[in-house]
Design a protein around this nucleic acid. Structure first.
Lengths: 188, 188
DNA sequence: CCAGTGATGTCATTAAGTGACATCATTATA
DNA sequence: TATAATGATGTCACTTAATGACATCACTGG
């Protein structure tokens, strides 16, 4: 028998998103999250750098996944193609099972400026990481950064569609569609 | 004789940027800023929504300026042309006089993640405003948002150059150069 | 059996941010 | 002229985020 209940982080996450959805991010205190998770506020801050991070701390995993996918794309693939591979690979995180959670999370973030700030910097960090990976493939600047930023724009649009109310398609299908639209746009 | 010394906001701004540059953003308390400005912390929060805003509260003016310039571009001008007009107009804010302040401010923001977050959301807000103005000119989505985002990317790059160490050119010259590079890039 | 480890709890403290109320020179108005 | 309204500021009390220091205690390896 373990000394503590396992999955402290998961419990914090679950408690936090429930409370944020119920009464809003600002109205929720860290103490309340901790109480619902059966832990203390001090422990919350041992797992998350600050109150917002409870909604974002998986992002390093997603970034690693995408950067690896980009790096492993065929050497001959042009920049946007490699970025596309990364965007598709992100689908590992966005399957049907996690869609309800993703929806709740997205709604909470959209409703609060502080949380939108945090999301923006996470996306900027991701963009920088993709650009770095592109440069390691021999893509020069500013093409690397431009391709990365464009990719993140597509990602944002596709993700927003995926968590949208009346959307039935899967994330990968939507991403591929968005990429096709982008290519059509730039082919003008 | 006025009852209070005038320009409370300016004094707060000056005191804040000095202290941020001297000891760093996190090490500076609002009480210290207020003391240097000859006021109290409570008054600081009457002028700025939070500690970071002391570095950003001019942004509505810049946004209004740019949106107006975009709206007043020739009706026949394509999207990117209208955006370019807005970028150039922003130069009203970035003359040689304000360059020292802009440099200090930029260095402070780059050194702190919280401040970068705030900057990102301000730029995102600006981008959304430009996209809205483009739609009012009859530009459809997603072209409006794409043109706006591209414009903001150019703005960021040009601004970073302008505040750069060994840069001698003026902001407008740099922006025009960046726009020319962008056009060359997309002409491939 | 015991020392070390590691996740947690407890307590104290700093600083951001807000609400309530007081102050008082300027301005408008009777 | 006298007085009332205004508005920027100060003071005080309070909540909450965040952090450091130290204690606890089950588990683990020797």
């Amino acid at each position: 028998m373990a000394r503590w209940e396992p999955d402290a982080e998961s419990r914090f996450r679950a408690a936090a998103i429930e409370l944020f959805a119920e009464v809003g991010y600002e109205q929720t205190t860290v103490a309340a999250i901790a109480e619902r998770a059966g832990l203390t506020a001090r422990t919350f801050f041992r797992h998350f750098a600050d109150k917002r991070e409870v909604l974002f701390n998986g992002s390093e995993n997603l970034q690693r996944l995408m950067v690896d996918a980009l790096a492993q794309a065929p050497a001959a693939a042009p920049a946007l193609e490699a970025v596309a591979a990364a965007l598709v690979k992100a689908g590992d995180f966005f399957d049907r099972d996690r869609r309800h959670y993703a929806r709740q999370r997205h709604a909470v973030i959209e409703a609060n400026a502080e949380l939108r700030e945090r999301e923006l910097i996470k996306l900027a960090t991701l963009s920088a990481a993709l650009a770095r990976a592109l440069r390691q493939r021999g893509i020069a600047e500013p093409e690397a950064s431009l391709a990365a930023e464009t990719g993140i724009a597509v990602f944002r649009i596709a993700f927003a569609q995926w968590v949208g109310k009346s959307e039935r398609r899967g994330y990968v299908e939507i991403v591929n569609d968005s990429l096709a639209r982008l290519r059509a746009l730039t082919a003008d």
